[in-house]
Design a protein around this nucleic acid. Structure first.
Lengths: 142, 142
DNA sequence: TTTGATGCAAATGTTTTGCATTGCA
DNA sequence: TGCAATGCAAAACATTTGCATCAAA
């Protein structure tokens, strides 16, 4: 049995071809983010016969199972990435779309403090920093 | 001329009835957030004749002009609030939807540091903390 | 075999757009 | 008057869902 099949089983998901293909795609490209549409296009182009609805269902299941992480970079469409077990936030270049993952313990600490100050129990958070990456700062858009 | 008319003019926007009504609605309820649909419903219920498309156009213009601030609490619809000139982030109760605004200089500082470490010029950021407010912690959902 | 997964198409919810009409300056 | 703003309806877009079919256990 493939390692992907093992992963699915361990997460209580029945092993099916579409699920294997989606998981495989993410594991082939560690550290990258994809929208549902992108996952769909890639699989279709790889010769797989799969529907966009199935992609959405699988991505949601994987996110629920903790295999994938779902991010919403503002009002835009949702992006998915492999969950590496380690929480992190995102730094996004508004020019080229480059995404950098980071983890800042000091910020995480302060977030808990802020929540506490307002009587909240912090469950999770979403933080995206928008800026210009080194390359795009040197070559501004025409 | 009304103060709302002044505000519109000062921001390079022609003074029209729909714009006045939208601005007035926000200024009447400081510190509150509304979706486009909510703004629409409120104005209709106040006896105004206005289209949803106009609401969207006006909200976008106001956000561009810096009069309003647009927030996307995850993949959900967009929310708008009066821009008070002071940047702040949001703390949201996942149960009752209560929104608390906060500003934490230490986090803001760390964000700049993180961006710098990765060679980015920080332009802006989006941060939403999700949790349970005091009231909802005491009376968990059935 | 039997239940759950899939694919398709249609429905949904939010937001945007084309276009004829209206209304500020 | 003239051009921008509006209202309506339709389009666009991401996402979800109903349902008949298919496939994994």
């Amino acid at each position: 049995m493939s390692s992907q099949a093992e992963t699915l089983k361990n997460n209580g998901l029945k092993v099916t071809l579409p699920r294997l293909k989606v998981l495989e795609m993410f594991e082939k490209t560690p550290g990258q983010h994809f929208s549902a549409e992108e996952v769909y296009t890639r699989l279709i182009e790889s010769g797989n016969d799969i529907g966009i609805a199935t992609i959405y269902r699988i991505l949601m299941q994987f996110a629920d199972a903790g295999l994938l992480r779902k991010s919403n970079f503002d009002g835009d469409k949702a992006w998915f990435e492999l969950e590496d077990g380690e929480h992190h936030d995102h730094l996004l270049c508004v020019d080229c779309g480059k995404v950098v993952e980071f983890l800042n313990p000091s910020i995480e600490q302060q977030q808990r403090t802020v929540a506490k100050q307002h009587g909240f129990e912090l469950l999770e958070h979403n933080m995206v920093l928008y800026g210009l990456c080194g390359a795009c700062r040197k070559t501004p858009m025409a």
